[in-house]
Design a protein around this nucleic acid. Structure first.
Lengths: 228, 228
DNA sequence: TCTGCCCTAATTGTCGACAGTCGTCAGACG
DNA sequence: CGTCTGACGACTGTCGACAATTAGGGCAGA
């Protein structure tokens, strides 16, 4: 049971070809290898990967399910373009979902889960000290996903992931971070405290405001960068 | 330009075959023609409809996008089974989404939209007087969708539709209605008032409690029917 | 009798080919 | 010169066939 490539196994198990291609495409899109608005050419991609068009098509449909692409009939599948307004709308949805997750998590969290939740918080603390935006971003992501997991609502997690992925198609998300690390960290800490104290109402409120603040900061940063 | 069946044109334009089949399947599932847990046999369905398996497969993937079926690799696509716990979780999500929609709608609603929103309210009033559960159900649906539309958040609408469709897979949703019509109507009226007065905070709160109440009533009704 | 393996039938996953559709562009026409 | 028409090329939608996988049942061995 040693030298076993579990990744390869899982890749084949989870979805042979179509699933693998889906993950590949998702990675490429999130990395910006395929630009928003760009069309995904099925035949070109199929000959590039050496597979038939069928799994490619299926992968595209799965991506559409995640909201990352848009399929126009007889035209093809296009990588979703997110404008600032839609990003704001996504953040509003996130604020509602995060608030719900925070509320539930505060009600049901165990001591062990509380410790798990502390890990990403400490990551963010370290990232704030060293002003490591990338690390902070990751810790932030983990923190929120952790709360979602603790809340234990499968559908909520799935919807939340979709919203986050879609939002991350917006190429300038990181604009809002510089200078906001300390404030953002402080908010995460108060959220952690509220959850630790099982104060559901407070956790929900803090969560909601936390996301709304992030939205406001992002919008402001975008407008500022446009003014220049 | 007169006797032109734009519906037929749009039907062909919007989704050739796969889309049509998707709608057909969705209808069949919601009508209970295909039971939850049942497998959708691709070859059987393809020979039944006289088309190839490709559009069938695609339709199934679209249904998976809507959360109505579950695709297990190398096993097939199965109509989603909803248990009471998952239904509760879906209602919790709904409460968050509806609250957000109510909040936004209260902020941006116009006089004309207010009149449009009054239509389903009047339907529910009439349904309550005549104790027409089916009609009330429809009015209820329209009322909430109308608020969603007014809120104007496209992604929110899409997510909301998915949650509602999934919830409606639970076969005993209507159990909670008998005896609750007057109370439910009253809640809708207060929501309408809050939105009309542009009281966003109040609209959000009322919405949230409205859905939570519906959830509680449904759970109670289910447990009651199980006890018997 | 029970357990485990293998075989088979049914069904999904993948393939290559063809048909249908859309955008483009050259050419005809006013 | 601008507009419309029709053919062309590229691409997606659909098809039928084949390969791979799974579930179920029969059979041999303990």
């Amino acid at each position: 049971m040693s030298g076993f490539d579990m990744n390869a196994v899982r890749a084949v198990q989870s979805r042979s070809l179509a699933g693998v291609i889906c993950e590949q495409l998702e990675e490429m899109i999130l990395a910006g290898k395929i630009q928003p608005g760009e069309r995904i050419n099925e035949s070109q991609l199929s000959s590039l990967l050496g597979v038939s068009r069928a799994p490619i098509r299926e992968a595209c449909r799965q991506l559409e399910r995640h909201g990352m692409v848009e399929v126009r009939v007889n035209r093809g599948t296009f990588v979703k373009e997110i404008d600032l307004q839609e990003l704001e709308e996504l953040y509003e949805i996130r604020s509602a979902l995060d608030a719900l997750a925070g509320e539930r998590a505060a009600q049901v969290i165990t001591d062990q889960e509380l410790e798990e939740l502390q890990v990403p918080l400490e990551v963010m603390e370290a990232a704030t000290r060293s002003e490591d935006h990338k690390l902070y971003y990751q810790g932030n992501l983990d923190f929120h996903m952790c709360i979602m997991r603790i809340a234990g609502n499968k559908n909520l997690i799935s919807i939340y992931e979709g919203v986050c992925k879609k939002a991350s198609l917006f190429r300038r998300t990181s604009l809002s971070l510089p200078g906001r690390l300390p404030e953002s960290l402080r908010q995460h800490q108060t959220i952690y405290t509220a959850i630790a104290e099982h104060d559901a109402r407070q956790a929900a409120t803090l969560m909601r405001h936390h996301i709304v603040d992030a939205k406001i900061a992002l919008v402001a940063a975008c407008q500022k960068s446009e003014d220049q």
